[in-house]
Design a protein around this nucleic acid. Structure first.
Length: 299
DNA sequence: ACCTAAACCTGGGCGC
DNA sequence: TGCGCCCAGGTTTAGG
């Protein structure tokens, strides 16, 4: 699910929420989604939470990290209270935060936790709990000393939302070498970290470039515009706390949806009108992934 | 080195 | 209403 803006949002919220707490319990409900010895992290303090590409890194006082990848449908939901008694008390007392939680929408209405999709539950020294839910169970948690232990996943390009790392010079250098479709190159995590299917579609539309264009055919001007579009769309999506396009995937740690789905221009809009030319938005597969484009506006 | 399809899973939506 | 098929925010792996 989550791409850079969603993982950034979750990571920032976890940093705010978990920093300084100790892990008191690790309950594993799905063995295949937790890699490592859970006893190793019990009673360790959370020193901070950061992000690299689409990986969340929870730094522990023992020096290691609890790394989390949400893949397509992973969620991390934090609750300090969950009993129905507490819910009803919050209702009576008009607790704004709890009411907001109760009102969030979708089939996973996260009233009951853990639920059938919960794979791991971490409990902290304040009795708060972090629920790792994952409908498709592709996501994982892993105890690692550094990113190198993640194998291929640890080999990552510059962060796609950071202009200094993702420099124009660097972008030009990776594009000159290859005849691959531009969409595949900007989604290649080893070349550029954080861009996934939604934001690749959006950035290419904004830049007016066909997703299938061989990268070595891009003009200098197009390369500049594409870089600006990637930086721009990721920045905006972070501001709006990510995209919750469907009901079953990305949520903020409160259970609330993000808001960037209201600002998408091309992703998921097959058959609808292009905002720019009023032509029909088309769909095709590029590298096996669903790709939305406007044949008039993207060359 | 390239490309594609399949694999990991579960559920929603569509056509018939 | 039900069945079969295709689709889904990611990444790895197998085969040509």
């Amino acid at each position: 699910m989550p791409e850079l803006p969603e993982v950034e949002t979750i990571s920032n919220q976890l940093e705010q929420t978990l920093k300084g707490l100790k892990i008191t319990q690790v309950k594993i409900l799905s063995e295949k989604n937790f890699n490592g010895n859970p006893d190793e992290i019990i009673s360790q303090k959370i020193e901070g939470v950061t992000r690299r590409a689409k990986i969340i890194l929870i730094k522990l006082s023992g020096g290691k990290y609890l790394a989390v990848h949400l893949k397509l449908t992973g969620q991390l939901i934090y609750r300090e209270t969950q009993s129905s008694k507490q819910l009803s008390r919050a209702r009576v007392e008009g607790d704004a935060k709890m009411q907001r939680l109760e009102q969030s929408e979708g089939p996973f209405e996260i009233k009951e936790l853990p639920n059938k999709f919960t794979t791991v539950v971490l409990t902290f020294s304040n009795d708060g709990k972090l629920y790792f839910n994952d409908l498709r169970k592709f996501g994982w948690m892993k105890i690692v000393g550094d990113l190198g232990e993640l194998g291929k996943m640890g080999k990552l390009g510059p962060e796609a939302n950071k202009p200094e790392e993702f420099s124009l010079n660097y972008f030009q250098s990776i594009l000159a070498k290859s005849k691959k479709p531009v969409k595949l190159v900007i989604m290649d995590q080893e070349k550029l970290a954080g861009v996934g299917n939604i934001y690749a579609n959006e950035a290419l539309y904004m830049a007016g470039i066909m997703p299938t264009r061989p990268v070595n055919s891009l003009t200098e001007k197009e390369i500049k515009i594409l870089r600006d579009s990637i930086l721009g769309v990721l920045g905006e999506a972070i501001k709006h706390r990510g995209t919750s396009d469907t009901d079953e995937a990305y949520r903020q740690i409160t259970g609330e949806k993000g808001n960037f789905q209201n600002y998408l221009q091309i992703y998921g809009k097959k058959g609808q009108e292009c905002l720019r030319c009023r032509g029909e938005i088309k769909w095709m597969k590029v590298g096996g992934r669903g790709t939305f484009y406007c044949p008039k506006c993207q060359k």
